[in-house]
Simulated scan of single mutants.
Amino acid sequence: MSKTMKASLKARYEADKAAAAATVAANAGDLRLRASMTDATVVNGPSLNGLVLAVEKPGSFIIDYNVPKKDFRFQFTETVRVADKRLNLMYIHSKGDNRTILDGTLVFDSANKVSANHVLGSGNCKLKYSYVHAGLTTFEPSYDFAKNSWDFAVSRKVYGDDVLRAAYQTSSKHLALEWSRKSTFNGSFKVSASVNLADEQKTPKLTAESIWDFEM
Protein backbone atom coordinates (compact mmCIF):
# COMPACT_ATOMS: atom_id res chain seq x y z
CA MET A 1 0.00 0.00 0.00
CA SER A 2 1.41 3.36 -1.00
CA LYS A 3 1.76 6.09 1.57
CA THR A 4 -0.61 8.98 0.89
CA MET A 5 -0.05 11.30 3.86
CA LYS A 6 2.98 13.50 4.37
CA ALA A 7 3.92 16.03 7.03
CA SER A 8 6.67 18.59 7.35
CA LEU A 9 7.90 20.72 10.22
CA LYS A 10 9.88 23.91 9.69
CA ALA A 11 11.78 25.78 12.37
CA ARG A 12 13.28 29.22 11.78
CA TYR A 13 15.75 30.92 14.09
CA GLU A 14 16.86 34.53 14.02
CA ALA A 15 18.99 36.54 16.41
CA ASP A 16 15.99 38.02 18.21
CA LYS A 17 13.21 35.50 17.62
CA ALA A 18 12.28 31.95 16.65
CA ALA A 19 9.32 30.64 14.70
CA ALA A 20 7.91 27.31 13.60
CA ALA A 21 5.48 26.05 10.99
CA ALA A 22 3.95 22.66 10.20
CA THR A 23 2.22 21.21 7.14
CA VAL A 24 0.14 18.04 6.75
CA ALA A 25 -0.89 16.84 3.28
CA ALA A 26 -2.91 13.88 2.07
CA ASN A 27 -3.71 12.61 -1.42
CA ALA A 28 -7.34 12.17 -2.49
CA GLY A 29 -7.24 10.78 -6.01
CA ASP A 30 -5.80 13.45 -8.31
CA LEU A 31 -6.16 16.08 -5.59
CA ARG A 32 -3.89 16.93 -2.68
CA LEU A 33 -5.39 18.23 0.56
CA ARG A 34 -3.11 20.35 2.72
CA ALA A 35 -3.28 22.13 6.07
CA SER A 36 -0.50 24.40 7.30
CA MET A 37 -0.10 26.27 10.55
CA THR A 38 2.41 28.50 12.30
CA ASP A 39 3.41 28.70 15.94
CA ALA A 40 0.67 31.34 16.33
CA THR A 41 -1.84 28.52 15.84
CA VAL A 42 -0.80 26.57 18.93
CA VAL A 43 1.00 29.01 21.25
CA ASN A 44 -1.21 30.09 24.17
CA GLY A 45 -3.80 27.48 23.26
CA PRO A 46 -5.28 26.29 19.97
CA SER A 47 -6.49 29.06 17.65
CA LEU A 48 -7.14 29.76 13.97
CA ASN A 49 -4.23 32.21 13.70
CA GLY A 50 -1.80 31.18 10.99
CA LEU A 51 -4.03 28.34 9.75
CA VAL A 52 -4.28 27.85 5.97
CA LEU A 53 -6.26 25.11 4.21
CA ALA A 54 -5.58 24.18 0.60
CA VAL A 55 -6.78 21.98 -2.25
CA GLU A 56 -4.22 21.28 -4.95
CA LYS A 57 -4.03 19.43 -8.25
CA PRO A 58 -0.28 19.24 -8.98
CA GLY A 59 0.63 21.00 -12.19
CA SER A 60 -2.85 22.48 -12.57
CA PHE A 61 -4.21 24.59 -9.69
CA ILE A 62 -3.97 25.46 -5.99
CA ILE A 63 -6.75 27.02 -3.92
CA ASP A 64 -5.68 28.36 -0.51
CA TYR A 65 -8.03 29.52 2.21
CA ASN A 66 -6.59 31.67 5.01
CA VAL A 67 -8.91 30.82 7.90
CA PRO A 68 -8.36 33.83 10.22
CA LYS A 69 -8.44 36.32 7.34
CA LYS A 70 -11.27 34.51 5.52
CA ASP A 71 -9.31 35.09 2.34
CA PHE A 72 -9.01 32.92 -0.78
CA ARG A 73 -5.95 32.67 -3.01
CA PHE A 74 -6.20 31.04 -6.42
CA GLN A 75 -3.25 29.79 -8.45
CA PHE A 76 -3.55 28.22 -11.89
CA THR A 77 -0.70 26.84 -13.99
CA GLU A 78 -0.52 25.82 -17.64
CA THR A 79 2.24 24.76 -20.03
CA VAL A 80 2.11 25.48 -23.76
CA ARG A 81 4.56 25.12 -26.64
CA VAL A 82 5.90 28.21 -28.42
CA ALA A 83 8.15 27.52 -31.42
CA ASP A 84 8.99 24.12 -29.92
CA LYS A 85 9.92 25.80 -26.62
CA ARG A 86 8.10 25.20 -23.34
CA LEU A 87 6.25 28.18 -21.87
CA ASN A 88 5.12 27.78 -18.25
CA LEU A 89 2.28 30.15 -17.34
CA MET A 90 1.00 30.97 -13.87
CA TYR A 91 -1.99 33.04 -12.78
CA ILE A 92 -2.29 34.03 -9.10
CA HIS A 93 -5.19 35.98 -7.62
CA SER A 94 -5.65 36.99 -3.98
CA LYS A 95 -9.27 37.82 -3.25
CA GLY A 96 -8.67 39.83 -0.07
CA ASP A 97 -6.33 42.48 -1.50
CA ASN A 98 -7.71 42.02 -5.06
CA ARG A 99 -4.24 41.48 -6.46
CA THR A 100 -3.53 39.49 -9.62
CA ILE A 101 -0.08 38.27 -10.63
CA LEU A 102 0.89 36.88 -14.03
CA ASP A 103 4.07 34.86 -14.24
CA GLY A 104 5.59 33.21 -17.30
CA THR A 105 8.78 31.26 -17.92
CA LEU A 106 10.07 30.42 -21.40
CA VAL A 107 12.43 27.45 -21.30
CA PHE A 108 14.87 27.44 -24.23
CA ASP A 109 16.80 24.39 -23.04
CA SER A 110 18.04 22.80 -19.82
CA ALA A 111 20.50 25.67 -19.26
CA ASN A 112 18.64 28.78 -20.45
CA LYS A 113 15.29 30.26 -19.51
CA VAL A 114 13.65 33.69 -19.28
CA SER A 115 10.86 34.56 -16.88
CA ALA A 116 8.62 37.59 -16.41
CA ASN A 117 6.47 38.57 -13.43
CA HIS A 118 3.78 41.27 -13.61
CA VAL A 119 1.28 42.57 -11.04
CA LEU A 120 -1.79 43.74 -12.93
CA GLY A 121 -2.61 47.42 -12.56
CA SER A 122 0.62 48.25 -10.76
CA GLY A 123 2.98 48.93 -13.65
CA ASN A 124 5.38 46.62 -11.85
CA CYS A 125 7.14 44.06 -14.03
CA LYS A 126 10.24 41.99 -13.35
CA LEU A 127 12.28 40.21 -16.00
CA LYS A 128 14.82 37.50 -15.14
CA TYR A 129 17.26 35.44 -17.17
CA SER A 130 18.64 32.18 -15.78
CA TYR A 131 21.72 30.40 -17.14
CA VAL A 132 23.10 27.14 -15.74
CA HIS A 133 26.77 26.56 -16.51
CA ALA A 134 28.04 22.97 -16.58
CA GLY A 135 25.06 21.91 -14.46
CA LEU A 136 26.68 23.38 -11.33
CA THR A 137 26.63 27.19 -11.41
CA THR A 138 23.50 29.27 -12.01
CA PHE A 139 23.61 32.95 -12.96
CA GLU A 140 20.39 34.97 -12.54
CA PRO A 141 20.42 38.65 -13.51
CA SER A 142 17.01 40.34 -13.23
CA TYR A 143 15.60 43.77 -13.98
CA ASP A 144 12.84 45.50 -11.99
CA PHE A 145 11.03 48.00 -14.24
CA ALA A 146 9.24 49.68 -11.32
CA LYS A 147 12.52 50.39 -9.50
CA ASN A 148 14.54 50.79 -12.72
CA SER A 149 17.25 48.63 -11.20
CA TRP A 150 19.15 45.40 -11.66
CA ASP A 151 19.44 42.50 -9.23
CA PHE A 152 22.05 39.77 -9.48
CA ALA A 153 22.24 36.26 -8.04
CA VAL A 154 24.66 33.39 -8.46
CA SER A 155 24.48 29.93 -6.93
CA ARG A 156 26.71 26.87 -7.13
CA LYS A 157 26.30 23.24 -6.15
CA VAL A 158 29.13 21.98 -3.94
CA TYR A 159 29.77 18.70 -2.14
CA GLY A 160 26.84 16.98 -3.82
CA ASP A 161 23.61 18.43 -2.41
CA ASP A 162 25.02 21.62 -0.87
CA VAL A 163 24.21 24.92 -2.58
CA LEU A 164 25.96 28.24 -2.01
CA ARG A 165 24.08 31.34 -3.19
CA ALA A 166 24.82 35.07 -3.23
CA ALA A 167 22.33 37.78 -4.23
CA TYR A 168 22.64 41.56 -4.50
CA GLN A 169 19.89 44.17 -4.97
CA THR A 170 21.29 47.34 -6.49
CA SER A 171 18.30 49.51 -5.54
CA SER A 172 18.56 48.81 -1.80
CA LYS A 173 22.24 47.73 -1.72
CA HIS A 174 21.12 44.58 0.03
CA LEU A 175 23.58 41.67 -0.02
CA ALA A 176 22.53 38.15 0.98
CA LEU A 177 24.59 34.96 1.32
CA GLU A 178 23.05 31.53 1.78
CA TRP A 179 24.16 27.95 2.33
CA SER A 180 21.59 25.16 2.02
CA ARG A 181 21.69 21.39 2.13
CA LYS A 182 19.21 18.59 1.52
CA SER A 183 19.64 16.23 4.42
CA THR A 184 19.78 12.46 4.01
CA PHE A 185 17.29 12.24 6.89
CA ASN A 186 14.22 13.41 4.92
CA GLY A 187 14.77 17.09 5.48
CA SER A 188 16.93 20.09 4.76
CA PHE A 189 18.44 23.10 6.42
CA LYS A 190 19.55 26.55 5.39
CA VAL A 191 21.82 29.17 6.94
CA SER A 192 21.76 32.70 5.57
CA ALA A 193 23.27 36.09 6.31
CA SER A 194 22.18 39.43 4.91
CA VAL A 195 23.44 42.97 5.26
CA ASN A 196 22.41 46.38 3.97
CA LEU A 197 25.54 47.96 2.54
CA ALA A 198 23.86 51.38 2.67
CA ASP A 199 23.62 51.14 6.46
CA GLU A 200 26.44 52.85 8.32
CA GLN A 201 26.71 50.07 10.89
CA LYS A 202 26.36 47.27 8.30
CA THR A 203 25.15 44.82 10.95
CA PRO A 204 24.52 41.40 9.37
CA LYS A 205 21.28 39.53 10.02
CA LEU A 206 21.74 35.81 10.59
CA THR A 207 18.99 33.23 10.01
CA ALA A 208 18.91 29.44 10.33
CA GLU A 209 16.07 27.30 9.01
CA SER A 210 15.46 23.56 9.26
CA ILE A 211 12.79 21.42 7.59
CA TRP A 212 11.92 17.83 8.52
CA ASP A 213 9.73 15.68 6.26
CA PHE A 214 7.74 12.66 7.43
CA GLU A 215 5.62 10.02 5.72
CA MET A 216 2.71 8.42 7.56
Score class of each variant (00 low, 15 high):
residue 202 K to F: 10
residue 42 V to Y: 05
residue 216 M to Y: 13
residue 61 F to A: 11
residue 43 V to C: 10
residue 50 G to C: 07
residue 198 A to T: 08
residue 29 G to R: 09
residue 80 V to E: 10
residue 192 S to P: 06
residue 130 S to F: 07
residue 80 V to F: 09
residue 142 S to P: 02
residue 29 G to F: 05
residue 195 V to F: 13
residue 142 S to K: 05
residue 96 G to N: 13
residue 19 A to Y: 13
residue 100 T to F: 06
residue 99 R to F: 05
residue 184 T to V: 10
residue 132 V to T: 09
residue 40 A to Y: 10
residue 173 K to L: 02
residue 173 K to V: 01
residue 81 R to S: 06
residue 158 V to T: 07
residue 142 S to G: 08
residue 113 K to P: 01
residue 106 L to V: 05
residue 19 A to N: 13
residue 66 N to K: 04
residue 149 S to Q: 11
residue 48 L to G: 04
residue 56 E to W: 04
residue 79 T to Y: 01
residue 17 K to M: 12
residue 183 S to K: 10
residue 169 Q to N: 11
residue 30 D to Y: 08
residue 208 A to N: 03
residue 110 S to T: 01
residue 61 F to D: 14
residue 79 T to C: 02
residue 161 D to I: 00
residue 132 V to A: 03
residue 201 Q to T: 08
residue 73 R to C: 09
residue 39 D to C: 10
residue 63 I to T: 12
residue 131 Y to F: 12
residue 126 K to T: 15
residue 72 F to D: 02
residue 122 S to L: 10
residue 102 L to Y: 06
residue 147 K to M: 04
residue 175 L to K: 04
residue 109 D to V: 00
residue 216 M to H: 11
residue 169 Q to Y: 11
residue 89 L to N: 15
residue 204 P to A: 05
residue 22 A to Y: 11
residue 36 S to T: 14
